[in-house]
Design a protein around this nucleic acid. Structure first.
Length: 964
DNA sequence: ACCGCCGGGTGCC
DNA sequence: ACCGCCGGGTGCC
């Protein structure tokens, strides 16, 4: 059940060792192990509570993990436990073991947990009156279908699940705290949010994060480009996030202790701060420049990065020497003993915490004089061996102004480890004790923006400054750790990083000063290798740059928090329990918490944000106009024919209630109509898509490839219908090649019962695949002149010609979702002597860069038109040379259009931007536009909903589109 | 003395 | 654990 890497020694001393720091070993922290154990579980979204049960945690005196009243605890199966293979371990939020579930109950739980019938969550809310055991409220969560089995299984062993107070069950907590108010709402004392409010809450999650109390910061001299005010603010904020040691969200200081108001966990040491965050500014506001400025401005101790040719003081670059502070005394227990505190719970929290602190002192002594002394001594000895290194670091930290060094050395050491359980080998330098030898910043970016980083570095770093930048890409890349870690900046892609991962990756062996994830939302799937490889990087500071931090679901946020190591939410269980589930269920306080969390670590401004009453950036005006296109009579006839056909098909699906099953078909019908609006040539080719309902695109690709192979094989393939060499080849889904007219004949004679002449598989006209347009046209377009007009093409050409007369220097983006439409457009453009380039998803990175450079050039002979596929290149492209945008066809997702427009309507744009949307009158396109706004809403409503829900809402949409 | 009773040692899983 | 349990010491009251 548990992953094989769950490997501690079960000797109790070794176990303790887990939490002390075996510096160079492979031992993982418990919280990592927990993370690993839960990572494969389904999301908590769909689970319901089965009931709750009071249980007992025993063996408290053997472990150092402390629990406050009201604190959540984690329950982890321990099948390898030599004393009892049913063992269930109890751990606090930091992953420190607190004890075990009493064996009889553990036996009952083990069955359920191992079978994955339920997840069990614990809250310690009543305190204890002894040092050996304490009660814990357990709540069982799982899929509805397992509920009965769980309840019965527990009942068989004499445990009855309590169903009262089900909604949030064991999540409830003590009074007095902030979380108590959360509790109140969970108990229904405040209302849950309506769906509408919930939607708005998510919408606004990343809004209103603009206020930056950090003022502005000037960039280091080595930054050649003067920063705009909002960029200085961002820089100031980023520096502060990297340098300031404020408390992370939900932590507060209470007396001598640091207390997490959500999980009720408390620690004596200041919780590890997150050095970094999310810069979620809109695209075009200069996230790249700001990041470059950060790299150059904020090296160790807030000093600028020492660079060659800069006459500034040389920062203690490689200075490994650390102040040596005498070691503190050994021994003493680290048991904070808040179980004692809990039994004394009083309304006066401050007093309480003070008492707890004093109590624990007393107990430390008591423990030392305990009969278990010999064991204590063993532990102490064991620790002593490893102590010096860590103590040095810790006291060093204290010397730097960290936490007050008033605890016992042992305690400090352990907590240091807890506070910084950086995964992997040798990564356990407490982050509070800055490792001044780290120099390099690692930037990970999608391939499409790599060149952008290089350009911008070149552009913004002063020419007389030598910044060592290394592009870790390509087969010849230098894999020397020594070399890489001595760079100032190393740039690589997510793909390179993940393909290196697990394969002696040099990038994972380096202590980075900083890791920056560009377009960080890319790593939202936590199961992806890419994400895992990113999580395993060792760094002092971590940043996520993203224009769109949440794209579809709140759960996407988890990965970002895990990357930033925002404790305790880097363990998915805690995230689910404390944030995600309450938020999704519309719990008001849960949402507030989520918002607070996001607010603490995110800076986001939009183009329309204002700072001190002035707009953040002043971009040239943008006008969007819709140009209606009338279809010619012939086009209209074809369109109406297709629409009628589509309508009847979809009506049938609706009547049969099989729309969902035939969803792919439905989309194809709509696609056909949309293509009709553009150019009828697109359509003849798409018919082959209809009916390939499984994975049409894939299947099609495969068949096309097959067809190509058959024809290219040279053997003059003959059609088994006419027995002549194939003319107008098509391939069936069963992968046999015929002449289109021949097989069409077969199908039309046999009608519904048509079968492949070769293999007797059922075939349909709609399933015949032929070469896509481009391939056939390759030869054709050379001596073209015979391209067919379409109303939309003519509308575009009219615009382009008029524009060229008015001002021949204006450059345009011509955007379509259909690359084959772009191909069709090439002919008239060529015919009218336009110089154009093309950018679509099929092009190599190298070619793209080249094309963009060509287009952006101010050379009078440079191309004036770019044919752009809507999805090409993703975000980050800079096409500011263009000031006119022609959107040839409406997109399902209006945001995609916006993004595309933003490629030219962004920083650096000098002209007014004019956007023209071509919409065919009385067509599916018009309805699409009508629906676009609603559609946006639907997507957002689908935040917490299932895929089916989303599709269901789209069915309504589809009906509307076809006016059903 | 093959019991009861007393009191020290001991204690998670 | 101011418990329960175990096992050794002990043995009228």
């Amino acid at each position: 059940m548990l992953p094989s890497r769950w490997r501690f020694g079960w000797d109790r001393y070794t176990e303790v060792d887990l939490f002390t720091d075996r510096d160079e070993s492979n031992v993982e922290t418990l919280s990592q192990a927990i993370r690993a154990a839960v990572s494969e579980e389904p999301d908590a979204d769909g689970s319901v509570q089965f009931g709750s049960l009071q249980g007992t945690v025993v063996g408290l005196r053997y472990y150092t993990g402390v629990v406050n009243r009201g604190e959540m605890v984690g329950l982890v199966r321990e099948p390898q436990n030599p004393y009892d293979r049913n063992a269930v371990m109890v751990a606090n939020v930091y992953g420190n073991q607190v004890g075990h579930i009493k064996k009889e109950l553990a036996a009952a739980m083990a069955y359920i947990m191992d079978k994955n019938l339920a997840k069990v969550e614990g809250v310690v809310h009543t305190g204890t009156n002894n040092k050996f055991s304490m009660p814990v409220m357990l709540s069982f969560w799982g899929k509805e279908e397992n509920k009965k089995a769980v309840i019965e299984s527990m009942a068989r062993r004499g445990y009855k699940l309590d169903m009262s107070g089900k909604l949030f069950g064991a999540n409830y907590k003590s009074d007095y705290s902030q979380s108590a108010r959360a509790l109140a709402s969970k108990k229904g004392l405040t209302t849950a949010l309506t769906a509408e409010e919930l939607k708005n809450a998510f919408d606004n999650l990343f809004e209103g994060l603009t206020e930056s109390k950090d003022g502005e910061k000037e960039a280091a001299k080595s930054v050649g480009t003067p920063l705009l005010p909002h960029q200085k603010q961002a820089l100031s904020w980023m520096c502060a996030r990297e340098n300031k040691s404020g408390l992370p969200p939900f932590w507060e200081k209470r007396g001598d202790l640091y207390y997490n108001s959500l999980t009720c966990f408390s620690a004596r040491e200041i919780p590890e701060r997150v050095r970094g965050g999310i810069l979620a500014d809109d695209m075009g506001l200069g996230k790249t420049l700001t990041t470059i400025a950060l790299i150059l401005t904020n090296f160790h101790k807030g000093k600028p990065l020492p660079v060659e040719k800069c006459e500034e003081q040389s920062s203690p670059l490689k200075a490994k020497s650390k102040p040596h502070v005498a070691s503190k005394q050994e021994g003493g227990s680290s048991a904070g003993l808040s179980d004692g505190a809990a039994s004394l719970m009083q309304p006066d929290l401050y007093k309480l915490e003070t008492m707890a602190a004093n109590l624990s002192d007393v107990v430390e002594e008591a423990v030392n004089s305990d009969t278990a002394k010999s064991k204590e001594e063993k532990k102490a000895t064991k620790r002593k061996q490893e102590a010096p290194v860590l103590l040095e670091d810790l006291d060093f930290a204290a010397a730097l102004g960290g936490s007050a060094p008033d605890q016992s050395a042992k305690k400090k050491k352990k907590t240091a480890k807890k506070a910084a359980p950086t995964p992997g080998v040798g990564s356990s330098i407490p982050e509070s004790a800055e490792d001044l030898s780290a120099r390099a910043t690692l930037i990970i970016a999608p391939l499409s923006v790599l060149s952008n980083w290089l350009d911008q570095l070149e552009q913004h770093v002063r020419p007389d400054v030598k910044l060592n930048v290394y592009l870790y890409y390509g087969s010849e890349r230098n894999r020397s750790k020594k070399f890489l870690s001595s760079q100032d900046v190393v740039i690589t892609t997510y793909n390179v990083l993940s393909s290196d991962f697990g394969n002696k990756s040099p990038l994972h062996g380096i202590n980075w000063l900083r890791v920056v994830l560009d377009e960080g939302h890319i790593i939202r799937n936590s199961n992806a290798k890419m994400s895992k490889s990113v999580l395993d990087l060792k760094a002092q500071r971590r940043w996520i740059l993203s224009g769109t931090p949440i794209q579809n679901h709140v759960k996407d946020l988890w990965m970002l928090l895990a990357f930033l190591r925002l404790k305790p939410f880097d363990v998915k269980d805690w995230w689910n329990r404390v944030i995600q589930r309450p938020a999704i269920q519309g719990d008001r306080v849960g949402l507030q918490n989520l918002q607070t969390l996001v607010k603490c670590i995110t800076l986001r401004r939009t183009k329309s944000s204002e700072v001190n009453g002035r707009p953040l950036v002043s971009l040239p005006e943008k006008t969007v106009c819709v140009e209606q296109v009338e279809l010619s009579q012939a086009e209209r006839e074809e369109y109406e024919l297709a629409r009628k056909e589509g309508r009847s098909t979809i009506s049938r699906y609706v009547a049969e209630e099989t729309v969902l099953r035939n969803y792919a078909d439905v989309l194809v019908i709509l696609m056909k109509l949309r293509l009709h609006c553009c150019h009828s040539d697109l359509l003849a080719k798409i018919t082959s898509d209809l009916g390939a309902s499984a994975t049409p695109a894939e299947l099609r690709e495969r068949l096309i490839e097959k067809l190509r192979l058959v024809l290219a094989s040279g053997s003059d393939e003959e059609c088994s219908v006419c027995l002549c060499s194939v003319h107008l080849p098509v391939i069936t889904h069963c992968a046999h090649v015929y002449c289109r007219p021949c097989i069409a004949q077969v199908i039309s004679t046999e009608q519904e019962r048509a079968r492949c002449p070769l293999c007797r598989t059922e075939i349909k006209t709609s399933e015949l695949v032929e070469f896509p347009q481009e391939e056939e046209e390759e030869g054709k377009s050379v001596n073209s002149g015979n391209w067919k007009k379409s109303s939309k093409v003519q509308a575009l050409m009219g615009n382009l010609l008029r524009l060229r007369c008015e001002d021949s220097s204006v450059k345009c983006l011509v955007v379509s979702q259909f690359t084959r439409f772009l191909t069709i457009l090439e002919s008239p453009l060529r015919e009218h002597g336009f110089s154009f380039v093309r950018l679509d998803g099929t092009m190599t990175q190298k070619r793209r860069t080249q094309v963009i450079k060509e287009f952006q050039s101010s050379d009078p002979d440079s191309p004036t038109i770019m044919l752009l596929s809507l999805k090409a290149g993703g975000v980050g492209l800079n096409l500011t040379a263009a000031s006119h945008v022609y959107l040839m066809d409406p997109a399902w997702n209006p945001a995609a259009e916006e993004q595309c427009i933003d490629r030219c309507h962004r920083l650096g744009q000098k002209r007014k931007v004019v956007v023209t949307k071509f919409i065919v009158k009385d067509s599916v396109e018009e309805n699409m536009v009508k629906i676009q706004r609603q559609k946006q809403d639907l997507v957002e409503k689908a935040f917490g909903s299932t895929n089916t829900d989303r599709k269901t809402s789209r069915i309504d949409e589809i009906k509307a589109l076809l006016e059903l």
